[in-house]
Write a protein that binds this DNA or RNA. Structure first.
Lengths: 121, 121
DNA sequence: CCGCGATATGTTTGACGAAACATAACGAGA
DNA sequence: TCTCGTTATGTTTCGTCAAACATATCGCGG
């Protein structure tokens, strides 16, 4: 069997990736991760929900924090629950912007998108 | 050196990929290939321009032709110039639709896109 | 009929990224 | 001080995808 722990961004009508030349990129994966971190309060839990290893989730966050002027995720080691992570204001803003861009783009392209879908097999 | 024969879709503000669940997907790469085939009149020449092997270009077209009801590219073997390929009406329509969707999406998201870019390092 | 330029495929090799595995360190609370 | 859950990293294994390499076929024109 090939296994399917983390099915790629399937079942989306429009998959949008923001590409900033040489500064990195941000797509559905990192956005969802940010969202789940905000809800879960930890990188580990968010990663588990998405079926990815902690290391992978951690690396994605590392990348995000490095590509913006201010970190998007603040991490805390140790403590009552062992530690945790949460979105900074910058993180919340970036996530909101991404969601908005996707929503606008989907709305704008919906009509022609449907036309193309009609040509599919 | 790592070599850069076919630099990924860089220098784009917005990278958009149409994802049709289980029917396949279409992004900037296939779109550009279609465009060049229309101009060049052959898969081989189009692929060369994009720095990809003929085989790869051929496979991409094979995939596209398979995912739509009608083939997007018509191929001809042999002949004066050895053969060639051109877009079918369906191919032209799909390409136009894709370009339109991208343009609309970029226009729609431009403002917030700029806001996010301001947060970059 | 032979060669050219393109389509059409199979096979092999290799590079890259993801996954798996393995630890270390942290810090509050019991 | 010992545990617990998390952050933080290093190392190794592995699967996948792309490139490279190698042919075969086609069909007109010279």
């Amino acid at each position: 069997m090939t296994r399917t722990p983390a099915p790629p961004p399937e079942r989306h009508r429009l998959s949008i990736r923001l590409v900033f030349d040489d500064s990195g990129m941000m797509g559905p994966g990192k956005a969802e991760l940010l969202e789940r971190i905000a809800r879960c309060g930890s990188i580990a839990a968010a990663g588990r929900e998405m079926g990815m290893s902690y290391k992978r989730a951690w690396m994605l966050i590392e990348t995000l924090n490095a590509m913006f002027r201010e970190p998007l995720v603040e991490r805390v080691r140790g403590g009552p629950g062992g530690g945790g992570a949460e979105l900074t204001p910058a993180g919340q803003e970036v996530l909101a912007l991404y969601r908005a861009i996707v929503a606008e783009a989907e709305a704008a392209g919906q009509e022609r998108l449907e036309a193309m879908r009609a040509l599919l097999k």
